[in-house]
């Protein structure tokens, strides 16, 4: 049997010239750009604050409060705006949101990203950033359950090129460290709505919404499905809360921050009211709050539990039932600075 020598494509094509090739590429790029503009118009990508943004601010600034948590930590970027306005810039919060993070991920960011900068000294050996007096660890029950899979968002959102290269040297190119590269690639194309929408499906949702907007009944049905799913998830959380690695990470963070003379507060983040069943309010949530109090209370750390006590309604939460929308965050900021977070405006004794 002879070796096949069929051309790449069975279809015989006339020889291409560089000119034809250039025209093809030009029109392909043109199509892409045009489609991207349409995608921008339909679903403009939202810029979300990331660890990288916080690091840039820290390197050039001198915050008085460090607030670290998952994507929920973004709430403190809004509180920062309020507190700066109220204190005429005297108090400044550095919000460090570790997307899809848990306590071990926050501890990693604290150890490998924040501390090296916080511990920088000037030529005389004095700390370069002397204003930092308080730290807030933002958490919820989910943070204390073990990860079911590797912390793939840690390389993506928290690594630098140095961490990536060190990991590649140690383990080669892996699916885990590829998350860093994938995320950098996505950030590189930050001007493209199509690239930013990869894996998000916001564009498809927007198209569907324009072509066939969901009826009130359909929206209500979706609301019920989503809330049922959330309620079950929170109820099930009772069986996984308090995993040792996550609680150890909380312990380590508190010790590390206190060792630097910081007043540490743990905030139990507010949840969307509809997603919490009576059963969850009697099991997962108080059990988790109890675990946190038992872990950090003896160290003199105050725990502020806003899980159910914040004055937020379902309308203050986004379509994912998890994150507070901008207006909700602004309302929460105003209320918190008049209430449980009033101490942030006071000088530390």
């Amino acid at each position: 049997m002879s070796h096949p020598s069929t051309p790449i494509d069975r279809v015989p094509r006339p020889a291409t010239t560089w000119r034809r090739l250039a025209v093809t590429v030009l029109f392909a790029v043109g199509t892409l750009v045009a489609a991207d503009r349409v995608a921008w118009w339909l679903a403009p990508p939202a810029h979300l604050r990331e660890v990288e943004d916080a690091m840039r601010e820290l390197e050039t600034g001198d915050p008085t409060v460090l607030a670290i948590g998952s994507s929920h930590g973004r709430t403190f970027a809004v509180i920062d705006d309020s507190i700066r306005a109220r204190s005429a810039g005297r108090e400044r919060i550095l919000a460090v949101p570790v997307e899809w993070g848990k306590l071990t991920a926050y501890a990693w960011v604290l150890r490998h990203r924040l501390l090296p900068v916080l511990d920088e000294t000037d030529a005389d050996g004095r700390p370069r950033r002397r204003s930092l007096r308080r730290a807030i660890i933002i958490t919820e029950w989910w943070d204390s359950c073990p990860y079911g899979s590797p912390l793939r968002n840690l390389p993506a959102r928290s690594w630098t090129w140095q961490h990536y290269i060190a990991d590649v040297r140690q383990h080669g190119l892996t699916a885990y460290n590829n998350n860093f590269l994938g995320y950098r690639w996505s950030r590189f194309w930050h001007g493209s709505a199509l690239v930013q929408d990869r894996g998000q499906r916001r564009l498809l949702t927007a198209v569907r919404q324009r072509l066939a907007p969901a009826s009130a009944e359909a929206q209500q049905a979706n609301f019920e499905v989503q809330t049922a799913m959330w309620r079950k998830m929170v109820e099930d959380g009772a069986s996984c809360i308090g995993s040792a690695p996550e609680m150890d990470a909380l312990d380590w963070m508190v010790d590390t921050l206190q060792a630097r003379g910081l007043e540490v507060t743990v905030l139990l983040y507010p949840r969307m009211p509809a997603t919490l069943s009576e059963r969850a309010k009697a099991t997962t949530l108080p059990q988790f709050a109890g675990l946190v109090r038992a872990a950090v209370g003896p160290k003199g750390v105050s725990v502020i539990d806003l899980t159910t006590s914040a004055p937020l309604t379902d309308a203050d939460f986004g379509a994912d039932f998890d994150h507070i929308v901008r207006a909700g965050n602004a309302r929460l900021a105003g209320w918190a600075l008049d209430g449980p977070f009033r101490f942030l405006l006071e000088s530390r004794p």
């Binding site: 392909a28 199509t31 892409l32 489609a35």
Partner: peptide, 13 residues
Amino acid sequence: AALRGIFYGGVIV
């Protein structure tokens, strides 16, 4: 070539 380019662009989109 132009139509071919539009087609390829569409595939990538």
